[in-house]
Design a protein around this nucleic acid. Structure first.
Lengths: 168, 168
DNA sequence: TTTTATTTTCAATATTTATTGAAAGTTTAG
DNA sequence: CTAAACTTTCAATAAATATTGAAAATAAAA
């Protein structure tokens, strides 16, 4: 397999995986492209290499920058903006996890909590069972969130993985 | 908040969360509806309560049954099929996790492995750096997969959560 | 300042994904 | 067996989501 082929396959795979998990294909592909490149890349190069429009390239880059996993890089004597991806895997993986948790999971956890409280005083069997179901989900996500928060805060997920492998 | 209101909010929230994570809205809503009900529910009731078509209801139920998180329930003297959701949270959460891992993550891990091997002998700086990036991703996912497999196999994720809370 | 290069925005359009509903298939009752 | 009850399938359609591309905005150079 030639290098360019390998890179292309990586980009395609990343794009497909993103799609399945609710991440825009172009965003995932731009991320993969930047990950697979040693040097900073400009918007024009991204457009050309992924065959996407300027608008799409621009918005995808911006989203990755918002996630904090891609940085702008100024190149002396060039007016264009260049971009590089955070290459440390655990670092960007954690940033994506933190961002998605905050944006998508936290609001749901709040609602689960609300529902749990609101159904506390149900008297019917049906009401009590629903309360218990929601409460169980809420308590489990709560425990997982506490663990996740500690992992995120520690910034030493690598050590934790080692520890976990040792224990289990 | 009235019980019916609470249930509806649970169903809506579940549907929205599913959508964000690549799970069909109707599938997630049917799951939530079954979770929030003490008694088995028929296709007709699902159609009525969620205001969806027979085809959609049928396919959503089937998918949940395929996941192994919803069961058919025969009711004596009734020709209709009724359905109940697995109520034990950890049980269905694990089943969903296992299924998605197998279907969506495992193939990607295979490809990452392939790319890692295929770029082993790269000689250019660019080639070597790409190889390292992919290898790092591959190794991390590999470690996480091993942990996940053990957790899945143990069927005692509850104990592991307690253990983890204790350690960290 | 004016010109030119570059980036951003967003309405229009294309693509993908979800949903419908009626016909075909299946099962059970009479 | 035949009819009725129920389930499944899937082509057609609708809805949601992603992408384009050109105009507007911004920034740098002349």
């Amino acid at each position: 397999m030639k290098l360019e082929e390998a890179k292309q396959q990586f980009i395609d795979t990343w794009g497909a995986l993103g799609t399945e998990w609710g991440i825009n294909k172009s965003v995932a592909q731009v991320h993969a492209l930047l990950l697979s490149s040693s040097n900073p890349i400009s918007t024009d190069e991204i457009m050309e290499m992924l065959v996407i429009s300027r608008g799409n390239a621009n918005m995808s880059i911006r989203q990755l920058i918002d996630y904090g996993i891609v940085y702008k890089k100024h190149i002396a004597g060039d007016r264009k903006e260049y971009f590089v991806a955070e290459k440390e895997v655990l670092k960007w993986a954690m940033k994506i996890a933190i961002m998605r948790k905050k944006k998508e999971l936290d609001p749901v956890m709040d609602i689960l909590k609300e529902i749990t409280v609101a159904t506390e005083k149900e008297t019917t069997d049906d009401g009590k069972e629903f309360h218990n179901t929601v409460k169980e989900i809420q308590e489990l996500t709560d425990q997982l969130e506490k663990i996740a928060n500690k992992v995120f805060a520690s910034n030493r997920a690598d050590l934790l993985i080692k520890l976990f492998k040792f224990i289990i």
